[in-house]
Simulated assay, not measured.
Amino acid sequence: MSKIESYFPSMQVQYNIDFIYDPIGRIQSLNSQTISSMGTSNNLEFFSYNSDGQIWKISKSNFNIEYTFLNGLIVSSLSSPSMYTGLYFYNDSEQLERQEIYDENGDLDYMVEYLYDNEGNIIERYVTGTTSYFHSYDYDTNSNPYYRIFQNQEIGKIYYEITPNNALTKTRTQNTSSTNYTYDYDYNSLNNPTTSSEYQNGNLVGQTTYTYQ
């Protein structure tokens, strides 16, 4: 995938991302642009690799995140300048089971817990913190284009929470209130999504076009 272009009609915001790869085909950076009534802003997200070929650092203009590995898995992170830290825990299948994020004083800011289906998709996501809520998901059987970009990168589990397949529904439950999201896709002959539409409680809230190399 080389580019996505998303439009959010209720906010009248256009959001584009260009995916830049290094000479051996690894993702090198994400160049994003946001266009709204407030003007245009650009952001560069750059990835640094360790000797094992894993992304160990994400650099943006206003913050960095560095990750520590143990036995091939990310076990901790440090964000700067906020000095927030993360701890990461896995199940027997090396799927991310829980992440805990601590503030600069060492106090727990929030925690996220995950459950998976047999394909490795997140089907339940529990967030506990100042605001606590729960996500549940259903998926199609086609490949998620983001997953292919980060398929062999541990960062895909931690930072992006990327799943192998494309979400068809998402329900966000907070206390006794629920919000339902549905997603429609058009696919090319390779079963890659070319467009998607996001609906919130039946109302269109986002449209995305995908471009491939």
Rank of each mutant, 00 (worst) to 15 (best):
T209F: 06
Q14L: 10
E100W: 03
S177C: 01
S197G: 03
H135C: 02
T68Y: 09
T173F: 02
A167V: 02
F69C: 05
G106K: 04
T171K: 14
N71I: 03
S178K: 08
S79R: 11
S79H: 03
K157I: 00
D18S: 10
Y183C: 03
Y133W: 13
G86H: 00
L190Q: 14
I17W: 02
F19Q: 08
S143M: 12
Y90K: 05
Q54H: 04
F8W: 05
S77N: 07
F89M: 07
S132H: 07
V127F: 14
Y147V: 04
Q213P: 14
F63H: 15
Y84G: 02
P193D: 12
F8M: 12
N105A: 14
S177E: 14
Q14S: 12
M1E: 12
Y159R: 15
N201H: 06
N152G: 04
S189N: 10
S41H: 02
R148Q: 12
Q200W: 04
G39W: 02
I35E: 14
Q12A: 09
Y137F: 15
T176N: 08
T163M: 04
N43Y: 06
G202W: 00
Y116E: 06
L30T: 03
S82D: 10
Q207G: 01
Y102D: 01
N31S: 10
H135G: 03
N105R: 14
Y110V: 04
E100Q: 15
G25T: 06
S59T: 13
N192Y: 11
G86W: 00
I55W: 01
K60V: 02
F63W: 15
Q33G: 02
T128R: 08
N180S: 09
R125P: 03
E154I: 01
L190T: 06
T194S: 10
N165C: 06
T195H: 13
L73Q: 14
N165I: 04
L204P: 07
E124N: 14
Y49K: 11
K170V: 01
L30A: 03
E45L: 15
Y21H: 11
E161H: 13
Y185R: 00
I65D: 03
I4K: 07
R125W: 07
T173I: 08
Q95P: 01
T209E: 11
T179V: 08
Y88E: 07
K3I: 01
V205P: 07
L168M: 05
I20C: 02
G206T: 01
V75R: 10
G53I: 04
K170I: 01
D92M: 10
F134Q: 08
N152Q: 07
Q99A: 00
N203T: 15
T195D: 11
Y210H: 02
K3S: 05
I65R: 11
Q207L: 09
G129T: 05
E104D: 09
L73H: 08
Y114K: 13
N203K: 13
E100D: 15
I55E: 05
Q174P: 03
P81F: 08
T179Y: 00
T182W: 08
S32D: 14
Y90E: 03
S32N: 09
R148T: 15
E161S: 11
M1K: 03
E104L: 06
F150T: 00
M1Y: 13
Y212G: 10
T194R: 01
K157E: 10
N121F: 12
E100S: 15
M111V: 10
I55A: 04
I55K: 00
N71Q: 13
T211N: 12
Q207F: 08
L96P: 12
K170P: 00
R125C: 09
P164C: 09
S29C: 02
Y210P: 04
T209M: 07
